[in-house]
Design a protein around this nucleic acid. Sequence first.
RNA 1: GGCGGCGUAGCUCAGUUGGUGAGAGCGACCGGCUCAUACCCGGUAGGUCGGCGGUUCGAAUCCGCCCGCCGCUACCA
Length: 658
Amino acid sequence: MGKRYYYITTPIYYVNSTPHIGTALTTIVADACARFYKRRGRAVYFLTGTDENAPKVHRVAQEQGKPTQQFVDEMAEVFARTWRMLHIEYDVFIRTTEERHKRTVTEVFRRLREKGDIYKGSYQGWYCLSCETFWATSKIGAERSCPDCGKPLEWRDEPCYYFRLSAYESRLREYIQSNPHFIQPEVRRNETLGFLAEGLQDVAVSRSGTDWGVPVPDDPDGGVVYVWFDALLNYLTATGWLERGEEYLDLWPPDLQLMGKDILPRFHATIWPAMLMALELPLPERLYGHGWFLVNQKKMSKSLGNVYAPLEVAQALTTASGCELPYATDAFRYYMLREMPTDSDAEFSLEGLETRYNGDLANDLGNLVHRTLSMMHRYFEGRVASGEWRVEEPLATVFQRQVERATEAFEQVDFPRGLREVWEIISAVNRYYDEQAPWAQMKAGDTQRAGQVLYTGLEAVRILCGLIEPAMPAVAHAIATQLNLPTVPPWSELTEFNRLPGGHILGQPTPIFPRLQAEKATKLGQPHRLEGEPPGEPKKETARQGDKAMNETITIDEFKRLDIRIARVVQAEPVPKTDKLLKLTIELGDETRTIVAGIAETYTPEQLVGKQIVVLANLQPATIRGIVSEGMLLAAEVDGKAILLIPDREVPTGSIVR
RNA sequence: GGCGGCGUAGCUCAGUUGGUGAGAGCGACCGGCUCAUACCCGGUAGGUCGGCGGUUCGAAUCCGCCCGCCGCUACCA
């Protein structure tokens, strides 16, 4: 039993919010790839699904006053329904709450623990519930907020299992270096190698404090399996690795795993392959991390508030244009693929969608189909009159070349380029019509010439019908119907010309994409936000700005937890190989401490010695550049520069500030 | 700070290994056509190919420096 299916995956999506442009992008790209390979005759297995074992999910459910299971059932249905509405033809929709998945996670955990790749230790650190991530002390600011989402972190101190990720660092690096196509595009590969160069730490793979998730096997106090470890294994579960004996190898390994760039270097290109190495399983053929869509130059993600809901965008397009919903949905798919961010990020806008809709779809594709069929009906009663008609040169050469180029681009998941190549056919035929002017040939009585020209155009329409199917399946079917073909032609027939036989009767032409009328001002309107997402600026912006919102209050008790004192700098020296850091020795009452402060851009060591300063004395010690810092110097921040706070007059060191 | 990348017509961007007069789409203007969804075709827009040097017979394309962006990462206890 060997490999049989072309196995494509998307990440499984968190169910704590509804689908948006970002998750839709990954899923649409995956669907287009899946369809592309199907059209070429491959057996394809396309997996997507939902990640439901996160504690955050549990918490969101509680906030909504729902049993967690009910909540995840509902949300999984929202995702599945959205994907179906977007013409996503997945083969399996996996949910991590399924028993078979839990069995996979349990089994993998056991095996790796027996092997020694998972071991028990303990974890102390700051944890972001929202991002499901522990943060090293060196990563977080004094305000103890999450570097990613800006939300407050929680302190955790718990026994915990670790995965021996560090043991796979060099193997991983060697694999990536000797398999240049493993990680795509190139930028992502470089990023991953850069990430590896920093060195890999063992990662926590269990957590206590919640019972929502897969329990650590054979250890009643072991907590649940870390959600990332759990989630990644869905790709394995779906193959039937546990139940199908050797037969799961008809699927394994994945041929193409798609995802956003944010989860590639850290998870899919490191932890994931390392887990597979530990399991002694073959690695995926190809990991592809696309860029993000920005809205008004700003990042868009579930944690932020500036998110479009895909179905609402499609609905708005239908309303504004009069285009039927399935075709408006395909127009949305087309826009996503045509503008898909590859290396860097790209801008998503309704204006852009309108331009693509009117220009590429209504004026180019739709109009070409319509004018071609209209002329056939007008001049030839909708019938391929002669079996002698052939696709003419130089058009035949153009068709051949463009199909090849588009195919190559689609293989590289480069839909922006692939679709451009497809559209070259459209403009070539438009130019050809203009030169040949079959309407003039008819007037001149040269019916044979006109038929020859139109047949060439007709074949172009047939080829286009096949080429666009991965991007716009419903439109492809509509065109096939107008051509009166039983099915959308498979890829192999796109470079075989003259397939429409003499005597073939064409269907009726109907415009598929009615133009958006500018003068009617039927614009698509304002951003459509997700239900439950607050409007306004992304939360991250305020969290990241130095000037925090002043209206958040804390209690006096919270303030009292801070031990702020006056100290005197007795010694100061720069920290080697740094620009901002000074190592200070300070006198704090009876004791002497060492702290590290990032103020070298504003003060020289000489300026500091002897000065009295304000320090936070009961801050968790942290090691910075190998120096243990036992406290934090307080300073005003002006344009990123630190300005010291100095007592109005000399005070005893160790004095309390309150 | 380190690593990676980018900076080409008003806008969005193509431009493999250096060489015919630097391109496409959108927008604007002019013209043509009339089969078609006021569509399509052609032309014009005269962009120092971020700046300065260098290599070369010749560079947007190679090298160095600088400026400005972006991504990842790192030192802002």
